[in-house]
Design a protein around this nucleic acid. Structure first.
Length: 274
DNA sequence: CTATAGACCTGACGGC
DNA sequence: TGCCGTCAGGTCTATA
C-alpha cells in the first residue's frame, strides 16, 4: 500500500490510537523484517517505551519514542498496520505490538517485504533520501537540477527515492499523465517548461491523494478497517484496458525498468528531444 | 559515478 | 479442478 499519501494518511490515522501509549510487548513472527539488530534485542529495546509522536520521511513511518530512539517502519509492497481493540486477529500478521491500554497494533504483510528497525536519534538512516515533494524547499528548479544529466527514463527517475522521496509507481504514472509527459522520456532531456509541469503535477497528485486519504487497492485498509478513495480519481494507474479520460484513446501499458507503467499514448508526448 | 537485472516473498487472476 | 504464467503500491545488492 505504501506511497507518500498512504503513509501520510496512516500517520494521521494512527495518532489517536498510539500517541502517549506505552508499548508493553512486541512479538515478531517473521524475523527477517527486523533490521539493524537481532529480533530479541529489538523486542527488548522497544518494550516499555512510550510513543511521543509520529512522523514521516518519504515512505518511512517513524514512531518517536520517549528515550530519543525512533522505531522506523517501512511497509514496502504489501504491508499495513491495523489496530485491534478486541481478540480478532487479522491475516498475515508478521509482528504485533501490545499497548498499555490493551489495544494491539498488527504489522500485517502477505509478501513479507516490510521492514522495521530501531535507531538512535541523529542516525543517518535518511541521508540518501531526496527532498520531500510537498515541502517548501522542493521547487521546480530543485527538480530540474536533480534530473540534469540523468539518462534514465523519467518514470524510473521518479521512483528513485534519492531524487524525490515518497513517489511510487502509482503516483509516478499519475503525475506523468497530469504533466502530459511520456514515461520513457529521458530525464535529463526534459525541457525546463516540462519539468515545471511535472513539478506541479507531482504536488497536485500527492495532495489530492492525501485529501482522499490514500488509495485502497489490493485489500489495503486503514488502521480502523476503513478504506481510502484515492484510487477512484486515478486517471491512468491500474486502469488497463480503459480509455483516456481526456481523449478516449485506449490507455497503454508497458514495463519500464521492470515496473508496470500506465499511460495515454496520445496525451503523453516524449519530452525534450523528439 | 551511473544504470540495469536479480533477489526478496506470497496471493490473485486469467487462460488452457 | 489444476497448472502455469503474469502481475502487484518497494528497495537492496551485485554486476557492467
Amino acid at each position: 500500500m505504501p506511497e507518500l499519501p498512504e503513509v501520510e494518511t496512516l500517520k494521521n490515522e494512527l495518532k489517536p490510537y498510539v500517541l502517549g501509549q506505552v508499548i508493553e510487548s512486541v512479538s515478531v513472527a517473521w524475523e527477517n523484517m527486523v533490521q539493524g539488530a537481532s529480533c530479541g534485542e529489538f523486542c527488548t529495546s522497544v518494550k516499555g517505551r512510550r510513543v511521543e509522536s509520529l512522523s514521516r520521511r518519504g515512505k518511512y513511518l517513524i514512531f518517536n519514542l520517549d528515550n530519543a530512539e525512533k522505531l522506523i517502519i517501512h511497509l514496502r509492497m504489501s504491508g499495513s498496520l491495523l489496530i485491534s481493540t478486541n481478540e480478532n486477529e487479522p491475516k498475515y500478521v508478521r509482528a504485533a505490538f501490545t499497548f498499555n491500554n490493551g489495544s494491539k497494533m498488527y504489522f500485517c504483510d502477505p509478501r513479507k517485504f516490510g521492514k522495521m528497525r530501531l535507531v538512535k536519534d541523529g542516525h543517518e538512516m535518511f541521508a540518501r533520501l531526496g527532498p520531500e515533494p510537498l515541502e517548501e524547499d522542493f521547487t521546480a528548479e530543485v527538480l530540474r537540477e536533480r534530473l540534469k544529466n540523468r539518462s534514465i527514463p523519467i518514470k524510473t527517475a521518479l521512483l528513485d527515492q534519492s531524487i524525490v522521496a515518497g513517489v511510487g509507481n502509482m503516483y509516478a504514472d499519475e503525475a506523468l499523465f497530469e504533466a502530459g509527459i511520456y514515461p520513457l522520456s529521458i530525464a535529463g532531456e526534459i525541457s525546463g517548461e516540462d519539468v515545471k509541469k511535472l513539478y506541479r503535477a507531482i504536488r497536485k497528485v500527492l495532495r489530492k491523494a492525501i485529501m482522499d486519504k490514500g488509495a485502497s487497492i489490493s485489500n489495503y485498509f486503514h488502521p480502523d478497517g476503513s478504506e481510502g478513495k484515492a484510487q477512484n480519481s486515478f486517471k491512468v494507474a491500474h486502469r488497463r484496458g480503459e480509455n483516456c479520460v481526456k481523449c478516449s484513446t485506449p490507455l497503454g501499458w508497458q514495463k519500464v525498468r521492470g515496473r508496470g507503467t500506465y499511460f495515454c499514448p496520445k496525451c503523453q508526448k516524449r519530452a525534450g528531444k523528439p
